[in-house]
């Protein structure tokens, strides 16, 4: 199963990279498809065990992918735009009140905590500095600490609920 899954993902990635290469089979030429299958099989032979390390195939569910796209283009992008404008104003005014605070988002899986940490780091104003690997608590550098102790809604809004629905 890890071998087949990884070769399919590698093949699809190869198809995306060589998108319009001919017109014999849809948008792809025959040699490109042959090379794509070969590349997918080689990649799966080398990295299949790493790609499916936990042998947990919950991310194959397409509902999770749709939710991920809605999350990426909806609440996440809006939060990112707002935070960018906020930090852009702070660049001019120099009004900062930095702090490193700890939040516990109660996520269990590695994928979930990685996704949340990356979302937090991509929104300016909050930066994941470290993680407590036993309890999955995140240490976050916050450029303007509104109130202490920090509330999780102030730092990352509704991100934890979204990530829980997507990745857990």
């Amino acid at each position: 199963m890890p071998f087949i899954l990884t070769s399919i993902v590698g093949f699809l990635a190869y198809l995306v990279l060589t998108f319009p290469s001919g017109s014999t089979l849809g948008y792809w030429s025959k040699p490109e498809i042959g090379f794509g299958i070969a590349a997918g099989v080689i990649a799966a032979a080398i990295g299949g065990r790493l790609f499916c390390y936990y042998k947990n195939y919950r991310m194959l569910n397409p509902v999770r992918w749709v939710l991920f796209l809605i999350y990426a283009f909806g609440p996440f992008f809006i939060a990112m735009a707002k935070a960018n404008i906020d930090v852009a104003m702070r660049v001019f005014t120099g009004k900062i009140n930095p702090a490193i605070v700890k939040i516990s988002p109660n996520l269990k899986t590695d994928l979930g905590i990685t996704m949340l940490a990356n979302s937090i780091t991509l929104t300016p104003g909050t930066l994941t500095v470290d993680i407590d690997e036993d309890t999955n608590e995140l240490y976050i550098h916050w450029i303007y600490a509104k109130e202490l102790p920090a509330k999780i809604e102030d730092i990352c809004g509704t991100f934890p609920e979204w990530v829980r629905r997507i990745a857990e």
Binding site: I96, N97, P98, A99, I100, V101, K102, V129, D130, D132, Y139, H141, A145, L148
Partner: peptide, 13 residues
């Protein structure tokens, strides 16, 4: 250390 930080919980922990 972060300059002008009001609290550094990572350092404390």
């Amino acid at each position: 250390m972060p300059v002008r930080a009001v609290v550094d919980e990572l350092f404390n922990d």
